[in-house]
Design a protein around this nucleic acid. Structure first.
Lengths: 167, 167
DNA sequence: ATTTATAATGATAATCATTTTCATTGTATA
DNA sequence: TATACAATGAAAATGATTATCATTATAAAT
């Protein structure tokens, strides 16, 4: 019984590894320990990690992985469209697995301008999609642009920071 | 006749200067030559200038104005809500006069991911406003956020870069 | 006009995230 | 097992932005 479920896990992990290996290989890249670890770090959180966040997260288990490798891998994954790079205004890039690869639904961000807390929201995605399609069609025609992506976000004061201001 | 129109111009510039002086004074700041020059640099373009852009623009006429002052003034104007700071992905901040102070209508940006060309578009602002209001109301309730602003932008390949790819 | 308090400035140095360099190591394939 | 080349880490370089500090400009009061 236990053996079975362990094998299942092993099987899943293996299948996973093979998938990633294939994806990278398609572009002439290799799936290394470092890259796998970085991908897994991003897969196992819903936070928006910076390069240094990832470095620190991995450092106890993989002390060999240097910051440079993190930067290089993030660049690679970004190029491949596997992760998305964001600037939330704290002068460092932050990343999350994008659409197909992540475990989060399509979402946008709600950002506190005071403490930089980030909330992923998924409301009105349908209404939004309608507007986006409409806009996108108009814009691509008018300006002869091939539109490949969009960014929507709201800024404001979060729950806690709002209260702080009243104190 | 000519005298009159010259006086008119002078009068306008003077009125303008007084308005800006008042705005700054309200916060305990002074309207200096540097600050006026920086504001005018922003007022007389529809481009999205970086600190260095402004520095170079002004340098021939005002060689005394240093980069530091540009940064400080931009920070100041941003705090006051007079300009908006953007990151378009070329690792330097870019600025434009915001809403009430600029000569541009409410708009968003269309950004070429290849050459970083930026196009201001004003289409569908009404539809957009409707969606934004709806979303904003929902989000501020759900997450107890005071929403103060939003960002919408589209990414893609511009006219020229599209062709390049085919060559 | 002169004084006075303080805001603004420029030159310079410091920061800090990100990139580059380069010598070394790991890995897939012949 | 040899070969070609991808991947890596350490260290240096880069480049935008910020902090420091001594000096200068300015508004308001005398």
């Amino acid at each position: 019984m236990e053996a079975i479920s362990i094998n299942k896990f092993k099987g899943n992990a293996m299948r996973n590894r093979c998938q990633w290996r294939k994806r990278l290989k398609g572009r002439g890249y290799r799936l290394t320990i470092s890259r796998e670890a970085i991908i897994n770090a991003l897969r196992s959180t819903d936070k928006h990690l910076s390069a240094e966040d990832i470095y620190l997260t991995l450092h106890s288990k993989y002390p060999e992985i240097g910051l440079t490798t993190i930067y290089r891998t993030l660049e690679l994954l970004d190029q491949m469209g596997i992760i998305s790079k964001f600037d939330f205004g704290d002068s460092r890039a932050r990343y999350e697995l994008s659409g197909d690869y992540g475990n989060k639904a399509h979402h946008h961000h709600l950002i506190c301008t005071n403490c930089l807390k980030i909330i992923d929201y998924t409301d009105f995605i349908d209404d939004e999609l309608e507007l986006l399609n409409k806009t996108q069609k108009e814009l691509s025609g008018k300006y002869n642009f091939d539109i490949t992506g969009h960014l929507i976000r709201f800024y404001g004061l979060c729950d806690e920071c709002k209260e702080e201001k009243n104190t």
